[in-house]
């Protein structure tokens, strides 16, 4: 299981590297789809079918919007003249990456080995879940019954984002 997951995350890393360094913008957007759909396969291997369904449809909508934006513009290639500001930012990135890897090494010592989660917080949720909520899908029971506030917050975020998009993309005012 860990080997299969490592291979798929390796493909995602190769796709991400190509998406960042591609010359053509449309190719970069489609390579972003590699990362998204590889994530769907990872979710299926990790026994999370809810997440796989949501991720595949959301990735499709994101790709549609991005391709609509890119095709509408000039579809130029990315600029490639390295100068001093480019070298300074690349050097800063390498320092930041090394610092973050050091901190990750320190923090990963306290993670359990992969595949042995202790269910410390989810134990009381799972035990009486079918009597307390009455639903067969545990994730839906957790979302709407035990943690209903988070779902309410998410609905609010969606409405606010739609409000923002309508306000930004408006040309004619009220007559």
């Amino acid at each position: 299981m860990e080997l299969a997951l490592s291979v798929i995350v390796g493909f995602m890393i190769i796709g991400a590297l190509y998406a960042i360094h591609a010359k053509d913008i449309l190719s970069a957007v489609i390579a972003c789809g590699i990362v998204g759909y590889g994530l769907v396969i990872c979710f299926l291997l990790l026994k999370a079918p809810d997440l796989a369904i949501v991720q595949i449809v959301v990735e499709t909508i994101t790709l549609i919007i991005m391709v609509a934006v890119v095709l509408d513009s000039s579809r130029e290639e990315a600029f490639s003249k390295p100068d001093t500001r480019g070298y300074i930012s690349a050097g800063l990135t390498i320092i930041l990456v090394l610092a973050l890897l050091y901190f990750f090494r320190m923090a990963a010592g306290s993670l359990d080995t992969f595949g042995t989660s202790t269910l410390r917080m989810a134990g009381p949720y799972i035990e009486g879940a079918t009597e307390k909520t009455g639903s067969a899908n545990l994730v839906t029971g957790v979302i709407f019954d035990f943690r209903g506030y988070d779902t309410l917050g998410e609905a609010t975020v969606l409405v606010t984002a739609v409000l923002g998009v309508i306000t930004i993309l408006r040309i004619k005012g009220k007559k």
Binding site: A68, T133, G134, S135, F144, D145, A155, I166
Partner: peptide
């Protein structure tokens, strides 16, 4: 079964569908 969970599912589903449709329509109208 499950009390009010199907009602929550239906209305949250309508809301998410209308949100994404509105975002796409704003793009097309622009």
């Amino acid at each position: 079964s499950a009390g009010m969970l199907p009602l929550y599912n239906i209305f949250v589903g309508i809301e998410v569908a209308a949100s994404i449709l509105t975002i796409f329509l704003a793009l097309v109208i622009f």
